[in-house]
Design a protein around this nucleic acid. Structure first.
Length: 501
RNA sequence: CGCGGGGUAGAGCAGUUGGCAGCUCGGCGGGCCCAUAACCCGCAGGUCGCCGGUUCGAGUCCGGCCCCCGCAACCA
């Protein structure tokens, strides 16, 4: 029975169109999903869109559409981007889908039965112009800045979740490592939040209409954050067909950006505990991009549009470049102008050129026929793979990229030291050895590249005559000598044509 | 004293348990000619934010200070 691996991205709020941050999270999740599939595990990779809430309803109205139409259109934008980026998600959940709504109802009923929900009163400032609650801090001169009206104080009956009852248990799980928050700096942050203390929170809204009705009181709608988190289990059929749920839950990793860590590291585990379910194993929060040292924001106009970037550099390069900018997990600064430079140095001059020169030599000196096996790098390669696997297992995608880059540089150096073009004149036995080692080295390079740049990897493997490699998994594939003597290899088109800038 | 992150070569970043400061890009000088004017070798460039402490030894541990950023306050 294969090991399972369940990886998720957050579901993205349809109120906005996809930006580079959404792409970053999703690509990272895809890399993990593809790596674990390559390793022979049974993978479930989930992403989707979060579609309820007052804001969506407002945006829909402003666009003169029904909320459902608005959601359909915006959700499709995310799906289209993921298609362009070759994201290999196994499911795409939409919170407006009926199976999600049914799963949410089942979950909330369970919380209610467990005694984790009580009725309370929510008091807030309500702006009739907004038709929504606003916070005191949003007020300008005591008035709603959008409508220039003073808000009313309204008391609304709400249902609350007994968060406080479950906090000690959450703390325990964090301390024991059963629930891991990564990177460790985020773990500290969560501990800080717990130290500050948190209150029970409201799980419903009376004033909001666009949402999922509470199963035990249909005058109220489930607070959007509460039902959004449940996507991770409803997508597995929780509350309906429990087969997938039994197989894949708990999640091996919830991936997200650092801004929503509180919901995932505290609220979500607490709700799961209340419902008697297992908590996820790892919550991984990566950092934010700054662009030229500044926060990315619409008002500054420095937002990087993923579609434009793909148009310029191609999906494969975008995947690679985003993940190799800075350590996965940390914040990092990005210079838009740097993408082209790095494309040229890493991809065109690096991987692309290496593949090109090796295949050209195999073709020119040996008529494209793979020579007899040589084992010069058998041990070396095993060591490289160990580093690669360790990096991936620790979710250090940037380190995995580093391992690949080092191997590519090593291969370029190997060529220079042995000068196959000279050997072709003097020593055919030695030439055959060197070319075999290079071709086989390329096969390993492609395999390591696969999670990050799947199309490129496949192109390289096809050039090496490896057409059915996907039928095997890593333990076999990563063994030295997979390339058989006599295999025909062909030089293809340049993988990454150099960009003039 | 709200919480958290960070200040290391011109730029962007690594530095696991304290043990000679590293990587990539860029700059400069050589080499090579298989390759996408790509590749390889070498060189230059750093008071590791500041002050103090612990130690045989501190970028790394402790205390204080300065500066930047994120969250709290619709964004991954």
């Amino acid at each position: 029975m294969a090991k399972k691996f369940y990886v998720t991205t957050p579901i993205y709020y349809v109120n906005d169109k996809p930006h580079i941050g959404h792409a970053y999270t999703t690509i990272a999740a895809d890399v993990l999903a593809r790596y674990h599939r390559l390793a022979g595990e049974e993978v479930f990779f989930l992403t989707g869109t979060d579609e309820h809430g007052a804001k969506v309803a407002e945006s829909a109205e402003a666009a003169n559409k029904t909320p459902q139409e608005f959601c359909d259109e915006n959700s499709a934008k995310f799906q289209m981007l993921w298609d362009r980026l070759d994201i290999s998600n196994d499911a795409f959940i939409r919170t407006t889908s009926s199976y999600h709504q049914q799963g949410v109802a089942a979950f909330l009923n369970r919380l209610k039965e467990a005694g984790a929900i009580y009725e309370g009163e929510y008091q807030g400032l309500y702006c009739t112009g907004c038709e929504n609650f606003i916070t005191e801090k949003e007020l300008v001169d005591g008035k709603c800045p959008n409508h220039d009206k003073a808000p009313q104080v309204i008391k609304e009956k709400n249902y609350f979740f007994k968060l406080k009852d479950y906090l000690p248990k959450v703390k325990e799980l964090l301390d024991s490592g059963e629930l891991k928050i990564l990177p460790t700096s985020r773990h500290q942050e969560v501990l800080g939040l717990l130290r500050q203390g948190l209150d029970d929170f409201s799980i419903s809204r009376q004033s909001v209409k666009w949402g999922i009705g509470l199963p035990f009181d249909n005058r109220q709608v489930t607070y959007v954050w509460v039902e959004a988190l449940q996507n991770y289990i409803t997508a597995l059929g929780y509350g309906q067909i429990d087969e997938k749920f039994a197989k894949f839950w708990p999640a091996d990793i919830h991936l997200m950006a650092k801004d929503i860590i509180k919901f995932h590291a505290i609220f979500w585990p607490a709700m799961l505990l209340a419902a008697g379910l297992e908590v996820p194993k790892v919550i991984f929060a990566h950092g934010f991009f700054t662009v030229d040292g500044q926060k990315m924001s619409k008002s500054l106009g420095n937002v990087i549009d993923p579609d434009a970037l793909i148009d310029e550099l191609g999906a494969e390069a975008v995947r690679y470049l985003l993940l190799s900018q800075f350590p996965f997990g940390a914040d990092g600064d990005v210079k838009a102008s740097n993408f082209v430079i790095q494309y040229n140095s890493d991809l065109a001059n690096g991987v692309g050129n290496l593949v090109s020169r090796v295949l050209a030599m195999a073709d020119k000196f040996l008529a494209g026929k793979t020579p007899d096996q040589d084992k010069e790098f058998a041990d070396e390669m095993a060591g490289i793979w160990r580093q690669y696997r360790e990096a991936m297992a620790a979710f250090q995608i940037d380190k995995a990229v580093e391992v690949i880059k080092k191997w590519q540089i090593f291969c370029d150096g190997y060529i220079e030291r042995h000068k196959p073009w000279a050997l072709a004149q003097t020593n055919n036995n030695q030439l055959a050895k060197v070319i075999y080692n290079l071709l086989e080295a390329l096969r390993h390079l492609a395999l390591m590249l696969y999670p990050i740049m799947p199309i490129t990897a496949d192109k390289i493997l096809i050039s090496l005559g490896q057409t059915d490699w996907q039928a095997s998994s890593l333990p076999d594939l990563s063994r030295w000598g997979g390339l058989k003597a006599g295999t025909k290899v062909v030089k293809g088109e340049a993988l990454f044509p150099r960009l003039e800038k």
